[in-house]
Amino acid sequence: SVTEIRSGFTAIKANIQARDPIRTLSILSHPHSLHKVKASDRCCITHQLFTFYVDKVFKHCKTEDSYVNRKISSIANSFLSVKRKLRQCHEQNKCMCGQESTEKFKQILANYEGLNVTSAAIKSLGELDILLDWMDKSR
């Protein structure tokens, strides 16, 4: 599923990022980079981020381009299946949320809420490679 997310995103990356004119703000990577998250917090942050994308991002990412919309919904479906797996880890207490991941996720939500919902959603979608690169590296 993560590979499907990656290939789906690669297909629409230029289109989505071109819709985000704000260079000076990032949802995921600033001021605190995902790459600074401790190993013990990775599962929790990943679970929180997948929930964030499912609950807050995809539903606000409608475009006038049906091809792009189809790719977004296929990415969203892949997110749902990964999220289900992560929830199982969470329920088996293998995905504990420490202080740092809670703070980190709060920062991400603050970045998101600092923009109007459509801009925030499109920006978050355009940053999927930041999430995927971090997940690949952390594997």
Binding site: R23, T24, L25, S26, S29, H30
Partner: peptide
């Protein structure tokens, strides 16, 4: 040039 997410 600029770093994405950084203001300058």
């Amino acid at each position: 040039y600029s770093v994405y997410g950084v203001g300058k």
